[in-house]
Design a protein around this nucleic acid. Structure first.
Lengths: 358, 358
DNA sequence: AACCAAATTGTAACCGGTTACTCGCCACTC
DNA sequence: GAGTGGCGAGTAACCGGTTACAATTTGGTT
């Protein structure tokens, strides 16, 4: 009559139901209960319905930790993003979330990493919590990745160039987008100045290269900026003060273009009549300001969704499907709005109101 | 010499290290290894360092599923958000993420729920994956919550009113914000019109109530909008067409204010000289457009951070700490910018450039 | 030197699922 | 009627941690 083998004899009250409870209630073994619940293996319709009934009766919800431990899958994908400005962030998450949810996957999010060490820590801390990773970060490089990713983990990169071992990746084609914008601005032999982004930034270098090549290799006036609205404002002031002004300005991103536009406005000049202007990114502000801003941009949400799909392909059975593939280039779409609508005849009334026909 | 008790005798190659491997390498028991790694219980410095050395040597990373299974904690908080527009979304996530990360917590995110059923599904699917929930959703109500939340799970609500059992909650004080804006616009006896948000929306009702009370209970001209820029534009056109125009307009949010501003501009009127204007939310666009927009808003990131802190208090030992407490009201701050700067004398040059001194 | 309390360490039983393998049982051939 | 193939169900061994409890060591007293 040794009555104390179990440490805690009376737990039943207010404890969440386990699969053993369900099995007992349905009068089957745990194995059958598990099979019935997951619809795998062979189970009679009779036992299946008995188990399901017991499960709903007991409000049974499988413990996901136990399940992951046994199956080695988490049904979760990790998302690593840099400290992004509003719209880009919400759009890419919207795309990722939509695509993930439709496949029953959860999202483990980590954003705003100041440096490579923080990004590495984030990657490491996600190990074992996710089945795959979507990484968009200027701070990762092949070292960070291989050091912190245990070999098997599938990963998809967005706008992050890593040398060394190739991973599936998506890259916005900054070069193509910039040439498209500059060709548009330069139509009819107009001179085009450039407000450049930070030289250390790959995207700003690519956009500048596009600018240069669109002008046949001969750069016009180039002012240094840092992607902030303030730096665009300063550049705009500088240009307004020139005696010999360019016909048009290509800013390396929309924020600087907006700053520049404001500077010109403060100097009493209006775009496009006095000087035309275009940016890059197509942030939502671009169509809301007056004059609305010509720019080039991509469908960010779609990009996020595609990244998830790509990741899932690689989570599946055979690892390393698209192994030594080139990064997939996403070409931005040129969006012409008021700020470069030189010719009134071509300005539709919808454009005048800053609305797009889409 | 029975050599086949283990099902898979040769797994060592490319298998991730477990705590037993570490224990073996450090020549201690798994219990000591666990204690050394977690810094709990008492362990000699000597064994601790041996274990740590072995762990780094083997690149050991604890399996989080196993850990959660044993400890019943996931070190993760779930975040449920509605389909939010850019800036609000990224700011609140920034605040939540920063606060969570500094405490070593992960974020499981789920956004864009179309209806109550989807929100309920999201809550249910997070069960067992998170230690607590931050919910901001117009779709939850007490039924959804009590049905899908097993009693113990801590939760913090943001801008969601649920009747019934009280939960810790934060609420933006739309009424107070609106009265502040309207009092400012009405200074000197000026007449103020209102562009209202969708009547079904609680926030727009509260803002309208603030508008009415700030005018002593007597509403002026009220136009119906739906929070979109388009509806603001239409309202602006309607006002521009009036023969007897109000001195100022209070739009129930910034997007409608911007639309209205554009409509007035298209009609050849400039704010604030012809008509003053203010919005609500203080989205970043508000200080970037010309004229920059007077508005009222809260520090969204801070709100997110505080929600996390509040949640953590309730995750701790004693459940239901702040049980029957009132929701915490967050009072928006009035931000006066160009669009209501009637008097040139009070307009600083910094404001003219649309920059704030903060 | 013996003794005892405190500090370390080890053993093994959990946490709650999944699943390889075994066992009955039944229908169907030969 | 014995042999056999296959299906449904059950047993128990995992997955990889944590931790209660027991066993051992340590160190300070008398």
């Amino acid at each position: 009559m040794n009555a104390a083998p179990r440490p805690n004899p009376l737990v039943p009250p207010s404890r969440t139901a386990t699969i053993r409870d369900v099995a007992r209630a349905a009068n089957v073994s745990v194995a059958s209960a598990s099979r019935a619940i997951n619809g795998l293996g062979s189970v009679t319709e009779a036992t299946r319905s008995r188990v399901v009934a017991a499960a709903t009766e007991l409000r049974y919800v499988p413990n996901s930790a136990a399940r992951s431990l046994a199956t080695r899958r988490t049904e979760t994908i990790g998302v690593l993003l840099p400290d992004l400005y509003g719209e880009f962030f919400s759009e890419i998450i919207r795309g990722i979330d939509g695509s993930a949810r439709s496949r029953g996957l959860h999202l483990l999010l980590s954003n705003s990493h100041g440096d490579a060490a923080e990004a590495a820590a984030a990657i490491r801390s996600m190990r074992g919590r996710v089945d795959g990773l979507i990484v968009m970060s200027p701070h990762v490089d092949s070292t960070v990745l291989s050091e912190n990713l245990l070999s098997g983990m599938p990963i998809v990169l967005i706008n992050s160039v890593v040398t060394g071992k190739p991973h599936p990746a998506f890259l916005v084609d900054n070069y193509a987008g910039a040439t498209a914008v500059v060709r548009h601005l330069a139509e009819g032999g107009r001179t085009v100045a450039h407000i450049a982004g930070p030289p250390a930034n790959l995207e700003s270098r690519e956009r500048r290269r596009g600018y240069r090549d669109a002008l046949g290799g001969h750069e016009g006036l180039v002012l240094q900026g840092d992607f902030s609205e303030e730096s665009g404002y300063r550049a705009g002031c500088a240009i307004a003060a020139l005696s010999d002004r360019p016909d048009a300005i290509f800013a390396a991103n929309d924020m600087m273009a907006i700053g520049c536009l404001n500077a010109l406005a403060d100097a009493g000049m209006v775009a496009p009549d006095d000087i035309a202007l275009a940016g890059f990114d197509d942030i939502p502000l671009s169509r809301l300001i007056r004059p609305s801003l010509t720019t080039a941009g991509i469908d960010i949400a779609k990009l996020g969704g595609r990244a998830v799909e790509r990741l899932i392909e690689n989570i599946g059975p055979g690892p390393d499907i698209h192994f030594d593939e080139q990064p997939e280039l996403i070409e931005p779409r040129l969006v012409v709005r008021q700020s470069s609508a030189w010719n009134n005849a071509t300005r539709t009334s919808a454009e005048k109101r800053g609305r797009e026909t889409q």
